[in-house]
Design a protein around this nucleic acid. Sequence first.
DNA 1: CTGAAAGCGCTTACAG
DNA 2: CTGAAAGCGCTTACAG
Lengths: 347, 347
Amino acid sequence: MPMSQRAHRRTTTTIKQVAELAKVSIKTVSRVMNDEGNVSPATRDQVLTAAQRLNYRPNMAARRLASRRSFMICLLYDTAASDYMVEVQFGVMERCDADHYNLLIRPCGDVTTRQIKQTLEQIILQSNADGFILGPPLADNRSIITLLEQHGVPFVRISQSPKKAKEPCVGVEDTQAAHRLVTLLIEKGHRRIGIIRGNPKHGSATDRLNGYRRALVEHDIPIRDDLVVDGSYEFEDGVDGAKRLLSLPKRQRPTAIFACNDHMALGVLQYAGASGIEVPGELAVCGFDDIEFARFVWPGLTTVNQPIRGVARTAADLLIRQLKGEYLEGVSIRLPATVVERESTGG
Amino acid sequence: MPMSQRAHRRTTTTIKQVAELAKVSIKTVSRVMNDEGNVSPATRDQVLTAAQRLNYRPNMAARRLASRRSFMICLLYDTAASDYMVEVQFGVMERCDADHYNLLIRPCGDVTTRQIKQTLEQIILQSNADGFILGPPLADNRSIITLLEQHGVPFVRISQSPKKAKEPCVGVEDTQAAHRLVTLLIEKGHRRIGIIRGNPKHGSATDRLNGYRRALVEHDIPIRDDLVVDGSYEFEDGVDGAKRLLSLPKRQRPTAIFACNDHMALGVLQYAGASGIEVPGELAVCGFDDIEFARFVWPGLTTVNQPIRGVARTAADLLIRQLKGEYLEGVSIRLPATVVERESTGG
DNA sequence: CTGAAAGCGCTTACAG
DNA sequence: CTGAAAGCGCTTACAG
């Protein structure tokens, strides 16, 4: 006998059996299980006792079919770093568990917007998700947002650009964090500070650049265009950016580089290592994200720790509250981030 | 009107409407949708055309309820590295998509076996999963295996220890890969090769040590106990291991270190960097796993690339085939891994 | 505060 | 190769 057949034989107790034992109607059991209220404490106790004795668990498939809800939340994201996404998954899951929602994950890496839209439409049509959480930078994708809005499906965005849609949005205060980071460099005596910018598709890229600018302006340090180079959050951008910045004439070249994420900062470190430039002696380096490896490289990387799990938990919370009928249009939440100082910016 | 209400209004076509349009019974539509056969080509075409015209998608909740299957596969894992798990998720998902299974993820990091068992029992009782895929090292956890077997739930293990259960098992040929890696070091002239072992809870730790031993034996190099140090796959173990190995008297200390995973190898690199020991000049270093950062550090890390996604896809495949009734007891598959040579082992 | 009835959209088991 | 009937285990909408 193959296992698959044995598996079908699992005995399950139904709402009917609980109702019989508790001597009430199935509707009353349903009321108790769903905390609907309008049940006398005595009846409630009877039902709960009966349910416990029979080890009753509501059948989700039946509940879904009858209520026409899936109790599933879909987490949609594309090419985010794995560390980041695993944290997001944890955060969302924590919140989902509390309300018995299932989490469906939908990575769409290396896929065109057109393909994502098709997938999305399938998921929506099959009623496989009551709501969506969009990770960056998908959360800023205009045509995805429009599609979800057209179908009237609730969703929450994890993004730095709240204005891009009226749906709730959760992000990080990274302008402030970047500001503190660059201020730290200035306080250590740096005046020529280079920056390697993030992927312009992400709202965070703009935010972090703004933090950098503000810190310089506050200290009356002119913003030099030749110290601002483009990047897109990839390791290689860090290598290229460092190369460009450090090939400036010696008296003009930066003594510190702020790479807008850790991947690029590690690229800077690699270029420095390969070129015999000593960090932090000749060059201070800092990143953003505090990925696991920021403390694993030598010298350890000064960076910013983002409360990713908290952001994700908050996003899930807003979505679930929306599903329960709360009106949350225009809600935007930003969580604070923390500067983590390590060896790459010196003593 | 809150969004949650609008969401409920999504119009869906049912099997009944398709049946009417195609002028057949709903049972026949069901047959076509499930590829059951026993339908004449002409009828089949009619149904397919009708389904397409109405943009019909079977309602999963109804299907689940009627068939008493959840069409969900649960991926259960604990404290694996995020890079690893994201790859596993991708691989499993790829295979699930093909058969319209949903993927439920269940990370159990930092949780006792007792708690995992409770969670598992809940999932099983709620029929929320037709089958499970166990990631390492959970896949070798005796009491988890027993629990699943008792409930008669099909599962597949991702593990290096096929003998630990009769259920299907998928792994990597890492003994051979470790053997090739150490042989490479020997061919470069190294004779004193240290090894930092992996977490003994993982079957891979034993495998990799065996590969190391075999390579030395084949080249008539004695295995020295003082060159074999314990570890558990954490970065810090690499630091500690390097410290211990490199504090040996100069003529006895290793000229190369094989850390049994990349995290530990990066620990070795960090210790070397902080101690002014030049890699690869004074010390060759290699790891195992080929995590993203193996190529981001300087010097780039020589390591072994594992076909994680393929392993995961294979595991999902075995599970789905089991669910379809195939008999796969005792099946064990090992996929080959590839040595990736970078700067940390020299020219 | 409680319940009887109808129905969610499929599959199963059976019949022909 | 095709179909009519029953039922999966809940919730919804209504009545009292």
